[in-house]
Amino acid sequence: MVVAQTAVCAETGNYAVFLTLLVKAGGEAVIRRAAAALPSLTRTIADQVGEPELVSAFGIGADVWESVTGCAKPEGLEPFKALADGPRVAPSTPADLFVHIHSPRQDANLVLARELMRLLGDGATLVEEVMSYKHLGGRDLTGFVDGTENPEGEERAEVALVADGPHAGGSFVSLQRYVHDLARWEALPLPEQEGCIGRTKADDEELDDDVKPPTAHIARVVIEEDGEELEVVRHSLPYGGVGERGLYFVAYCADPAVFRRMLENMVMTDHEGHHDRLLDFTKPVTGASFFTPSATFLEGLA
């Protein structure tokens, strides 16, 4: 039986550690051993620190997939492609590997992250480490509830995981780190903020269609195809303190084209001249894509 990596479909924890790394020349064998050890290592540390909800996922990028795994790439795995339209830019930034760890405790997350980095040793270089947290019960730093329509329960696996074939139980994952301009955002009157999002701030109710602007965030990213809404499983969390602050956006999906369509609808101006107005107040500064194979696949790399 194929088993998915534990972080992919688990409900998002209160705290997370996100790591992106580059593989060093000749480091593939070290990476392979560390990746194979991660599922067991996660269980061991969960027992050691007394945190049963500690979970993890390890993603591998297109450029190093074959050299690290020795297998053909999953169909659809490609490097993140940058997008730009006027002042809105969704950049592509260097990253070969992605590590996602979350639980109700940041100390448990860091114990696992440090031990994994020890195993990775000289095989990889750390590009970025972001520690994120749940804010006000699940709100973004803009004050709005984040991920209201995120799939729940068994639907998470249906949305996130490849159903069959050699890469069954795996998931395509895309990430972007957003930096918010909270000073400009907080200067907006409440009705304008709600128009940017498409939902009410206090009680998270969707605005009526005759009130919701076509530039509202949810108007841009809620896409229906053949009567079905396209979905991703989000593990996004705020990060930062009194200085730079924003959202670390993570989307898992069985089909990478779904996230891409959402991003294009946000960044690119449509034929009526509309784009996602939320991007006037926040900007992505990173962008990378990976495939998180099943835990069964990872452990088979040993």
Rank of each mutant, 00 (worst) to 15 (best):
D85L: 07
T125N: 15
T282D: 06
D270Y: 09
A257W: 14
A36V: 00
S56I: 06
V23A: 05
G13S: 06
F172I: 05
V221Y: 05
L97R: 14
G59H: 09
K24A: 07
E75N: 15
Y239L: 02
M262L: 11
F281A: 07
V30Y: 01
A288M: 09
L237I: 02
L141A: 08
Y178Q: 06
P39W: 14
A46D: 15
I101G: 08
F144D: 02
R177Y: 02
P91S: 02
A7W: 11
S67H: 05
H271R: 15
K81W: 14
V68C: 11
G147S: 03
A257S: 10
F98L: 06
R199N: 07
D107H: 12
E75T: 12
V232Y: 01
H217Q: 00
S174D: 04
P256M: 08
A10S: 07
G165H: 12
A168M: 06
Y248A: 04
G50S: 09
L141Q: 09
A37P: 02
S171Q: 10
G287N: 14
V3P: 01
V30W: 01
L161I: 00
G300K: 06
E231A: 01
G13Y: 04
L110G: 13
E28D: 12
L182S: 07
S236T: 06
A157G: 01
L126R: 13
V99F: 10
D276A: 10
S289V: 13
P87R: 15
K81V: 15
H274F: 15
T282L: 08
E129Q: 13
K283E: 14
F297R: 06
L175C: 13
S40K: 15
E228G: 01
Y178A: 07
E115Q: 10
V159N: 00
C9K: 03
W185C: 03
E53F: 10
S103R: 01
T292Q: 13
Q48W: 12
L41W: 10
I218Y: 08
C253H: 03
T215D: 06
S132D: 05
H102M: 04
I223Y: 04
E154R: 00
S171C: 09
V258N: 03
I223H: 08
E51W: 09
A216R: 08
L54T: 05
G123I: 01
P151S: 00
G240K: 06
P293C: 03
P104A: 10
A46M: 13
M268R: 15
E129R: 15
G147R: 00
V2T: 15
